[in-house]
Design a protein around this nucleic acid. Structure first.
Lengths: 259, 259
DNA sequence: CTTGTTCGGTTTATTATTTGAACCCACGGT
DNA sequence: ACCGTGGGTTCAAATAATAAACCGAACAAG
């Protein structure tokens, strides 16, 4: 691993439950030498990627990431466009809608919207990591991804998130066939118990699946009619999002939804 | 310069007019060796900070920066909170409002809002770099910054953005006194011709100025009454923003606005 | 008041990585 | 066929990164 990779991997130690990390913690979490971490963090700090609190000298993400994110959005406005689509999607379905993007072999939620219609909702956080095999979003992407990408992602062992999580690669591959036919993937309690999710892929300019749009509802609320309504809306909105970010659906993607 | 700094400085070559950069361009722009740039970009790509287009293999910012920005917002919700404040501010004043944050000795716009009230407006882009000596935002920050920071930033030569730009450090320092008294800085055509800007600093948890809130209007529209209205609104909203992001005004910051 | 622990930060010789110049191949224009 | 330009690669020489031990300060327990 090169020096740059090491430095950037330190940034990946931050998450929602750990927004600030001290030098010693960072050393332990990364497994690197303390002097190494110290110097790397110093460089990251000089570049504005992290900043140090005055009180306890703990590190947290710096504002340079905001600037870069704004620039990225100016170049490829996925986030900003998705927000409008997500709002429309959750208005149509009355459920929580979210969008996630592929990054290497990871899948991250990046934007979400809640519907005020029901008192109970599926709650989300941005920048959370999803599994491919356990979530509707992941399956939607796998259904239209390159074979060797599927191989990589479905290499055992697959994490068992809930009682219902399918961890047999062969069974998952079989399920991808129906994803390819309908264009929509489904996960009932396989990532979080009591959450019924549907998802549709979104494609980039090279017709590759770059992420997914999803609707998550409490299992108890999803009747056959509601399910059909959700999947219909997802199909329409995912194609809209793909088009609005300058992407194209691949030829094999079903243009009309046979739910 | 360490390797990490070099790699991250490559990211700074991207901007609104140059959202994608090929290997050769990047080599020229950075002044580094081609092999070096190639390897560094490879590492950045592996970490998701940049991605390569399939067609012409040009690099652009990757989606990892979006994830990190989302995490940073979860830790320190400056952007998301500022959006609401900016909207209110531009509703109250009828002019363009924007927020910028300090990053080392740089100042970057990060969020803005337009008012629909007038057909002519000052237009903005996020992630743009501002000068400290030429903008109201910069002066607002300098008025409450540490002396050595002011020294660093006001070291000649200072760029002359327009005919009206003040480039004499002594004159700028003198102007900071009135910023300290009123809590509001002003720039009439000193960064962009025909733009009249007012700005107020926002403070972090350590009572240091971390950025500024500003209102920019066409010079022709700013009557004494309108100016006073703008400065009043700015003062109120900047203090609100400071408080809502968990910051505190320093003792010397004027709590009541004597416009 | 001592002792032990943890923290952020620093030092050093040793070691591994980065670097630069030259080179390759493919492509597009002339 | 020729030239310029693009992305990508090679390898010895130069440089930067590393690990382990160490420092002083802060805090807690005995």
């Amino acid at each position: 691993m090169g020096t740059v990779a090491k430095a950037l991997s330190l940034l990946r130690l931050f998450n929602h439950t750990r927004p600030e990390i001290g030098l010693s913690d960072m050393t332990r979490l990364s497994g690197m030498n303390k002097a190494t971490v110290y110097r790397l963090m110093g460089e990251l700090q000089a570049q504005g990627f992290v900043e140090q609190t005055v009180s306890d000298r703990a590190y947290r993400l710096g504002s340079e990431v905001l600037r870069l994110a704004a620039l990225r959005e100016a170049a490829v406005p996925v986030l900003s466009v998705s927000r409008g689509v997500l709002e429309e999607l959750c208005r149509e379905t009355g459920e929580t809608a979210h969008m996630s993007l592929v990054r290497g072999t990871q899948l991250n939620t990046l934007s979400h919207a809640y519907s005020p219609r029901h008192a109970t909702r599926v709650m989300m956080e941005d920048a959370e990591m999803l599994s491919f095999h356990g979530t509707a979003s992941g399956l939607a992407i796998l259904g239209f991804a390159a074979p060797d990408f599927v191989d990589t992602v479905l290499a055992p062992p697959l994490a068992r998130h809930t009682e219902a999580t399918e961890t047999d690669p062969a069974a998952i591959r079989a399920a991808l066939d129906s994803v390819r036919i309908t264009g929509i993937a489904e996960s009932v309690g396989r990532f979080e118990a009591d959450v019924h999710s549907n998802a549709a892929p979104i494609f980039d300019a090279e017709r590759r699946p770059m992420g997914a749009l999803a609707v998550a509802a409490p299992v108890s609320r999803v009747t056959p009619g509601h399910r059909s309504e959700i999947r219909q809306a997802l199909h329409t909105r995912a194609m809209e999002l793909t088009q609005r970010i300058g992407g194209f659906c691949p030829a094999e993607y079903p243009q009309d939804l046979a739910v």
